[in-house]
Design a protein around this nucleic acid. Structure first.
Length: 298
DNA sequence: AACCCCCCCAACCGCCGCTTG
DNA sequence: CCAAGCGGCGGTTGGGGGGGT
């Protein structure tokens, strides 16, 4: 299908927005509301492309946009969410009040990518500690930076703030879809190679260690075991039931339910102790979705 | 002071999925 | 059912500022 451009390419202002243009856009959106960006571009008297108007509004003019330095807490949250979700900037931004996907994307690319690398490589599903990120820093990330963005916000298992009720359906759908379909390159890199069976039955291959164990050092594994133990202890303290990998046969299966929404059944085969990162990350995802109660061993 | 280089980030581009007629 | 429109998203670009020589 041939798509028409969102606006005529000729005669359209490009580049930085002037304060006058900002004012016009703000006034127009105040009166007419968001959306219908093509109409905004046409009717507001802005010689701008519809997408440009939308971008300017969403990223800079919208009320509640937080400008300025990313705090340490926010950075930690970005790192953790990126571990779970990859380059899903909009989803990550959704957990950082006042921050936009563009800002987080820029921050990642300029400040964090060199330390944590791209999510596109399989091995980066775990946090990498390379020459730039030392072992001590890595441990600090795991053990010390479990603080929420909002100090009053309740924490889930991994230290990620528990979602508000109204946020659950959207993110649950997003995340189950992400796990189930691997709808982008990153998701597929992380999960598709592990999938067998039909669409409703996600089975992780036993060869998972070859996908995720690559380059994992003993010390790396020990760090994750320690983190996992700490998480379990935390859950025990909270009385939360989470899945446990059976130490006898090394295989367990769990279901991850999105209560009241699309359900995805996740069957996992994990060699005990071999791939703690994926096990942990799935728990974190469950925690992230506030689904701890459903994350029980079958 | 002038030039160059690098980095940051605002903005653009193209693709994709959903909606609408 | 299909074509077209629209909005959203992630990747990429390039202008400008700051630091170095």
């Amino acid at each position: 299908m041939v798509r028409s451009p969102c606006c005529a390419k000729v005669g359209i202002n490009k580049g930085a927005w002037s304060s006058q243009e900002d004012e016009i856009l703000i006034n127009y959106v105040k009166i007419h509301g968001e959306g219908k960006w093509r109409k905004v571009a046409q009717n507001a008297g802005l010689n701008r492309c519809a997408k440009s108007c939308r971008f300017r509004w969403l990223n800079y003019l919208r009320p509640g946009i937080k400008r300025g330095d990313i705090t340490k807490d926010e950075e930690d949250l970005i790192i953790r969410l990126h571990q779970l979700l990859g380059n899903r900037w909009a989803l990550i931004a959704g957990r950082l009040p006042g921050r936009t996907d563009n800002e987080i994307k820029n921050y990642w690319n300029t400040n964090l990518a060199k330390n944590f690398g791209s999510f596109s490589s399989r091995s980066s599903c775990k946090m990498k500690f390379d020459q730039d990120l030392g072992v001590q820093e890595y441990q600090d990330h795991i053990t010390m930076n479990h603080s929420p963005v909002d100090p009053n916000e309740p924490l889930g298992i991994s230290g990620i703030p528990i979602l508000k009720e109204e946020e659950k359906p959207l993110l649950a759908n997003e995340s189950t879809s992400f796990i189930k379909n691997g709808s982008n390159d990153h998701g597929q890199d992380m999960f598709s190679s592990l999938l067998v069976g039909d669409d409703d039955d996600l089975s992780f291959l036993m060869s998972i260690d070859t996908d995720f164990g690559e380059g994992v050092t003993d010390f790396d594994l020990q760090l994750f075991r320690d983190d996992q133990a700490a998480v379990r202890q935390e859950n025990d303290d909270l009385g939360i039931i989470v899945s446990r990998v059976d130490s006898n046969d090394g295989i367990s299966s769990s279901s991850l339910h999105s209560s009241g929404h699309d359900q995805v059944k996740v069957e996992r085969g994990l060699m005990s102790g071999q791939i703690p990162s994926l096990d942990l990350e799935l728990k974190k995802l469950a925690s992230f979705l506030d689904l701890e109660d459903d994350w029980t061993e079958l």
